[in-house]
Design a protein around this nucleic acid. Sequence first.
DNA 1: CAGGCGATGTCCT
DNA 2: GGACATCGCCTGC
Length: 196
Amino acid sequence: MILERKFYMRDTLISAKELLGKTLVHETSEGTTKGIIVETEAYLGKKDRAAHAYKGNTERTRVLFSSKGCSYVYLIYGIYCCFNISSGPADNPECILIRALEPVYGIEIMDKRRGGKGNIYNLCSGPGKLSEAMGITRDEYGIDLTCRESGFYVEDTGIKVDKIKETTRIGVDYAGEDAALLYRFYIEGNKFISRK
DNA sequence: CAGGCGATGTCCT
DNA sequence: GGACATCGCCTGC
């Protein structure tokens, strides 16, 4: 069953943790790919210096200010895309960065998109990697992830997550005190996370 | 095998 | 004009 908008409209820290174990699905002309979300990070908008939305509503961040449960994709370092889901109570421009997936379906397609190296652990173990493997580009900006019609959604298949590790986010040293917040979550012991 | 660094384009000051 | 929620190659131990 597909996660509904109300799943994303709660406290972003709760949603970020509960997304672990859910399955991200993307149906494209090349085929369908699916991966279990194993690592996330929360970005709490106006009160979080590490968040893009901290600086306000701009062309890039506008989806964070307008709707929940939608995809926020941005280009990083001129090369890679990072995939986030807009979240939080209304009027809070928050989001959840998906940092790693455990590939479960369409693995050959993912590998082909990633250069055909044949290493399943190197397909989705990082935000840039999983965007490439799942076929997520800025064309997917603003897509509503709460309906099947878009071909881009998150499913609950009943997977139980044992233990969640809470730690600091990656690459946010510029955020001062906020860099120390424990807003990164991953499934402890999972082999598909981006790094320990 | 760890650490350094270049690629490359958009955003914001 | 500087910085960037990354990745992978290259080097040197």
